[in-house]
């Protein structure tokens, strides 16, 4: 069942908008054009943003929180093929035009999202918006390819470490609010398996798990337990970094300025 999003009263200041890496990477002129159409909303874990039966006409930019993109299967499971956090955007423009939508977008970690109608976004056909759409599709494809390989050869322990690292990085490396059920769904394994691995990580001091909040005192230790797939999806490869370089707002350009 699709859950209604709740609009919040907070304003769209540039600082607030720039918590999303893609919006932060856009030039001030492009952002100023989009600003009137961007609606800020609090979204709760489990909210279905789109699915094959109810395709979305909107694009979502998470400022905090994560969207899991999966393919819903007949028996009710929704196998996750990619996820998008504050480093990206997801929604209407991910599906091929004039084709039946295949994916379902579910809020995996609740937070503040910015929503804009795809019509408003594509109504501004400048090169940055076109690059944004291309990079978002590339980001989903990259993750889907990486996950297919990861699921085929890596252990549950390595995959859990990879998932934690990826999502801790999205939360600026501090704390992550996630239940073991949520992680089990994301990885397609049983909750008991997640509990046993998480208990082992906690006993060795790799993570601290308290009332649904996970933190990693030393992410480098967790990285040693993860498969190499994490490196390919780490911050340096985020689509927001690519978009920033494209827009001339990357770290190298800022240094020059």
């Amino acid at each position: 069942m699709t859950v209604q999003l709740v609009p919040t009263k907070a304003g769209n200041t540039d600082t607030a908008l720039r918590r999303n890496g893609c919006l932060a990477a856009l030039s001030p002129e492009t952002l100023a054009h989009l600003k009137p159409y961007l609606k800020r909303q609090d979204v709760l874990e489990g909210t279905i943003l789109w699915d094959p039966e109810q395709p979305s006409s909107d694009v979502y930019f998470p400022a905090t929180g994560v969207i899991a993109i999966g393919v819903p299967l007949r028996e009710g499971s929704n196998v996750e093929s990619a996820s998008v956090g504050p480093e990206g955007a997801a929604g209407a423009f991910l599906e091929a035009e004039n084709e039946q939508a295949l994916t379902r977008g579910v809020v995996q970690i609740g937070g503040d999202f910015y929503r804009i109608s795809a019509a408003h976004l594509s109504g501004l056909p400048n090169r940055e918006i076109l690059a944004l759409q291309t990079f978002c599709k590339d980001w989903i494809l990259l993750q889907a390819q990486q996950r297919a390989a990861c699921n085929a050869v890596h252990t549950a322990e390595q995959r859990l470490a990879r998932w934690l690292l990826q999502n801790l990085e999205r939360a600026n490396g501090t704390e992550l609010r996630a239940t073991q059920e949520l992680i089990a769904d994301a990885l397609g394994i049983r909750r008991t398996t997640v509990t046993l691995i998480a208990q082992s990580f906690q006993a060795k001091g790799h993570i601290q798990y308290r009332r649904g909040t996970i933190s990693a005192p030393d992410p480098q230790r967790l990285a040693k337990l993860s498969c190499e797939c994490h490196a390919g999806l780490s911050k340096g490869h985020w689509l927001s970094q690519r978009l920033a370089s494209f827009s001339g707002r990357g770290p190298a350009h800022r240094r020059e300025a």
Binding site: Q180, T192, T195, L196, Q199, S200, A203
Partner: peptide, 17 residues
Amino acid sequence: FFHLKKGHETIIDPRGE
């Protein structure tokens, strides 16, 4: 409850199903 015995280590399942 499902406890894992892994070498010298025992990992306790505190929640069960």
